[in-house]
């Protein structure tokens, strides 16, 4: 069975562990030392590199989870379910990093830890939707039904996230849009120098690699969990 090959940690995964460690260390160096200090905001702006990267990975993870859920509903195969749960958990952690770092940045720049801005609310709602997803899964014992309900809820949730954004955006946003065109009412906007752009892109790559590594670990854990359940079922019969 496919599960057998997962008993030992794959070589490439170990290699990826080391690779992501090196990349994130380098990104930390770039963000803290190499990139120039932003003239208006000062050192606190450096958190932006990890803030944006974490948000990116979190969003990609949630989208991946929704796509995997959709595939599961069309073609019920356990691997998509294992993937979706792993992606949701990884997404939750990265989105939390995104929200927390954003909050730290906002304290000196917006003069508040938190404001009810569309982006902030949408990120929080997304976090809550996927927490609810995990709670739903916990409440259902039959594995097949758990996977099916989880997939449906992930899709319902991802349908409501853009609507949340739109419903709150009717009032203007103060969140800066550094990549692409900024809104005139944004506070804390800045122009990036080429070294800043490089640092940002590097952080994106580093966080993406790290996210992939963590996701792989979590998928492996998911399969091992399945294996344990299977063995227990064989041994005691329930």
């Amino acid at each position: 069975m496919a599960l057998k090959s997962l008993d030992r940690k794959p070589r490439s995964l170990s290699a990826l562990d080391i690779f992501s460690f090196l990349l994130v260390s380098a990104a930390t160096y770039l963000a803290l030392v190499y990139a120039p200090t932003e003239s208006v905001m000062g050192p606190v702006q450096r958190i932006f590199y990890f803030h944006a990267s974490a948000g990116w990975v979190g969003m990609v993870a949630f989208i991946a989870a929704a796509v995997a859920s959709l595939i599961y509903l069309i073609r019920p195969n356990k691997k998509w379910d294992v993937f979706a749960v792993a992606a949701v958990e990884v997404g939750l952690v990265y989105s939390f990093i995104n929200i927390a770092t954003g909050s730290i940045w906002a304290r000196p720049i917006w003069n508040t830890w938190w404001t009810w801005d569309p982006r902030l609310v949408t990120a929080t709602v997304m976090e809550l939707v996927y927490f609810a997803y995990l709670l739903l899964r916990q409440g259902i014992e039959d594995p097949e039904r758990r996977a099916r309900f989880g997939a449906i809820y992930a899709l319902l949730g991802s349908a409501s996230v853009p609507l949340t954004y739109m419903s709150i955006r009717i009032w203007r946003t103060i969140h800066p849009v550094v990549i692409g065109s900024g809104s005139p009412s944004a506070q804390g906007d800045f122009d990036m120098t080429s070294t800043m752009v490089f640092t940002l892109l590097f952080s994106f790559v580093a966080f993406t690699v790290l996210g992939t590594t963590v996701l792989w670990h979590r998928i492996r854990l998911g399969w091992l969990g399945e294996r344990v359940e299977e063995l227990r079922y064989k041994a005691i019969g329930f």
């Binding site: 709602v125 609810a132 709670l135 409440g139 014992e141 039904r145 949730g157 409501s160 949340t164 419903s167």
Partner: peptide
């Protein structure tokens, strides 16, 4: 169909209901 149904519904419903 879940074990903790009365507890679960508000938790499932409200995040999706926000918009």
């Amino acid at each position: 169909q879940a074990r903790n149904r009365e507890l679960l519904l508000p938790v499932l419903l409200f995040p999706v209901l926000i918009p």
